[in-house]
Design a protein around this nucleic acid. Structure first.
Lengths: 197, 197
DNA sequence: AATATACCATACGCATGCGTATTGATGTCC
DNA sequence: GGACATCAATACGCATGCGTATGGTATATT
């Protein structure tokens, strides 16, 4: 009965594989899916292709792994953190502010949308978009709006959200002329969330 | 004294060059800048590379030509068609409706934003974004808003605009659940344009 | 000590895609 | 009809990037 059992024999996921996935994610976030090249990635990791093809079957497997890992901790996504708030008005406003404040997540999503034409990315993007919009629709319905109206506002809110980060990503200089972001979001929230039940 | 002078000698721009540019634009709009490959383009045009390198110095020249041609008839862009309207409220609302209705232009712009990481595209995108935002800021200022507030609203409007078309491009199925687009824009306009002077 | 496993390097084949060089066909002008 | 310009086909060199094959080294197990 070995006590110090399987230290490096089965770390279940051999550590270095994680490094590949993370590097791929970083590259996707910065330059899009098409920039994921195994040889250049290997160089930044200080190894060669020989390593890569031991950990992964091929390039697609790496991209898939990166996207799946990204989708997994979507549980940490903003929409998941505000399901518990009961007052629908409060929930919506908090959600809006939190969404615009989480630049990390917003920019990653914008980067992914940028690679949205890629057939590997499309389904992930689709699912995430549906999930987020559905959350918005529910929240607006909980506010007393009809289904059609709730869909309208959710789309409006989400378009503003995704458009903002797209602009921030593509032309940051232009966006940063708007110094008061909270005022920006405040106005959006006031416009979308009715003043009274 | 030749009467039928210079029919094909100097059409000033040798006709076929236009074809290359248009094909490149179509490809950029559909699949992004990186998809512009001279050999595949040549095939779709029914010729070979030999032709291309007579019309253009290299691939970059084609991309530049396509982007410049696109920027040229930005004079046909929505913002240029509504400068004449004197009533600022009316001007803004018309502009908003026209912008969301012109799907052609909106989708092309979304496609370009998708290739915004490309150093060739970036300056064009930057200029267009600045132009459009500046127009919005002016319009909101004409409405009596302060500079800071005008910038906020212009950014909000433009984020919603660009975000909408990004969503329409990336995940059309999800967006088309919102059947009443005019209601969508109507709400946006009401939210952004103050009711009274 | 011997063998097996995990990880990585090197070297190759192959496809794609850019750019060049050369040649050819079809006009236009004198 | 000969010279020149316009447009295009063919063939090549070269780089990048994917995937494979094979061998090497370190650690672990027995």
């Amino acid at each position: 009965m070995p006590i110090s059992l399987k230290k490096s024999h089965r770390p279940i996921e051999s550590l270095s594989r994680e490094a590949w996935v993370k590097a791929a994610q970083a590259l996707i976030a910065r330059e899009g899916v098409r920039a994921v090249a195994v040889e250049s990635l290997a160089q930044t990791l200080g190894v060669t292709k020989g390593s890569f093809y031991w950990h992964f079957d091929n390039r697609d497997a790496l991209i898939r792994a990166a996207l799946e890992a990204w989708e997994q901790d979507q549980s940490a996504d903003v929409v998941s953190r505000y399901g518990g708030i009961s007052d629908p008005r409060r929930r919506l406003r908090l959600l809006l502010f939190a969404a615009f404040e989480d630049q990390e997540n917003g920019l990653i999503f914008a980067a992914l949308a940028q690679s949205g034409e890629d057939p590997r990315v499309a389904p992930f993007l689709q699912r995430a978009t549906e999930r987020r919009l559905a959350f918005g629709v529910e929240a607006f319905q909980a506010l007393g709006l009809s289904g059609a109206e709730a869909r309208q506002r959710a789309l409006l809110a989400y378009a503003a959200y995704t458009g903002y980060f797209q602009l921030l990503r593509a032309t940051p200089r232009v966006v940063q002329d708007v110094t008061d972001l909270s005022g920006f979001v405040h106005h959006l929230a006031d416009a979308l969330v009715p003043a009274r039940t």
